[in-house]
Amino acid sequence: MSRNGLKTILEIGPVVLFFAAYLMLRDRTFDIAGTEYTGFILITAAFVPLIALSTFLLWRLTGELSKMQIVTLVLVVVFGGLTVWFNDERFFKMKPTLIYLIFGAILGAGLLQGKSYLRMVMGEAIPLDEEGWMKLTRRFCAFFFGLAVLNEIVWRTMSTDAWVNFKTFGLTAAIFVFFVTQGKLFRDHGTQSGD
């Protein structure tokens, strides 16, 4: 298997395994030491070390981790741990909201300083001029805040099944659609090099 293939598996594998395990255990409850746990709680308990292991392996494979990967790991450990400790799935459902709020706030803070922190992270992958980076950063900032609101609406008003489907497929599709809709910006502000 190629290095890029292994990297992709390590990045999306834990989410796929979480979804598959949820489908198998969502209607079951388990009695452990006199406490009843839903399948969702047990899957979350398994997901926390799995995401930690996959992040460690990504670091070993690539020699680096993005700030996004580190923040995501910390929030998974904290909110996954709270979910299991308090036997309350709401903590884990709040995690995406906080991730998107943090990323939106970081980008917003940069914009207030006239900087594109997004460029610092993605500058080598997407060659844009300065105006393009500022526009893309403003759009990403709004997008992250929108995803935070959307996650709150879904988990607070819909079933756990609906939230798991939204988290697994809806958010992924939203990110894909967001990038597709930026085609004109990439054309208008693209450069031949990342400078």
Rank of each mutant, 00 (worst) to 15 (best):
A174N: 03
D161F: 01
F19M: 03
G123M: 01
L42D: 02
N165D: 13
L185A: 04
E124H: 15
Q182W: 00
I153D: 05
L61F: 09
V121N: 10
I51D: 09
D88M: 07
M120P: 03
G80P: 00
L57A: 07
R187V: 11
T191E: 12
T8H: 14
N4K: 14
G39S: 00
F143R: 01
L118S: 07
S54T: 15
R138P: 02
L58C: 04
V74C: 14
T137N: 05
G183N: 14
A20D: 09
E152Q: 10
Q113S: 12
F47T: 08
A142I: 15
G39I: 00
G63H: 01
A125I: 08
W133G: 01
T157M: 09
L171F: 14
G13W: 09
A148R: 05
L23Q: 12
R187M: 07
L10V: 03
R26I: 02
M134V: 11
K95Y: 13
T35N: 15
F91V: 02
P96W: 01
R156C: 09
L23T: 15
L61C: 09
V76Y: 13
M68D: 08
T38C: 04
F86N: 09
T137I: 05
K67N: 09
A142N: 07
A173I: 12
N87M: 11
M94E: 13
T172C: 08
K67D: 08
D31N: 09
R187P: 04
A105E: 01
S2K: 11
G80N: 04
N151L: 02
R139K: 14
N165Y: 15
L6Y: 13
S116P: 06
T72G: 12
F178D: 00
D88W: 01
G39H: 00
D27H: 12
G123C: 03
F140T: 12
D195H: 10
G63K: 00
M158Y: 11
I153L: 12
W133M: 06
G183I: 11
F19T: 07
R28Y: 12
F166V: 07
E130D: 13
T29I: 11
I32N: 04
G123Q: 02
T160H: 03
A21N: 09
I126K: 02
F166N: 01
F145H: 04
I99P: 04
T83L: 04
E64C: 10
T157W: 10
K184W: 09
L98P: 03
R187Q: 11
F47E: 04
L61V: 12
W155E: 08
E36F: 10
L82D: 10
T38H: 10
G194T: 14
L10H: 00
R156K: 14
F166D: 00
R119I: 06
L98N: 07
V48T: 01
G5N: 15
M158G: 11
N165R: 12
G104K: 05
M134W: 07
F144K: 01
L42V: 06
D161S: 05
L10N: 02
T157F: 10
P96D: 02
L112D: 06
T168V: 14
K95S: 03
V154Q: 02
Y37G: 01
T83N: 06
K115M: 05
L171T: 11
F92W: 13
S54I: 07
S66L: 06
F56P: 07
A174H: 04
F140Q: 07
G13F: 08
V48Y: 00
L107N: 07
V121E: 06
L118G: 02
M1P: 14
F47Q: 02
E11K: 13
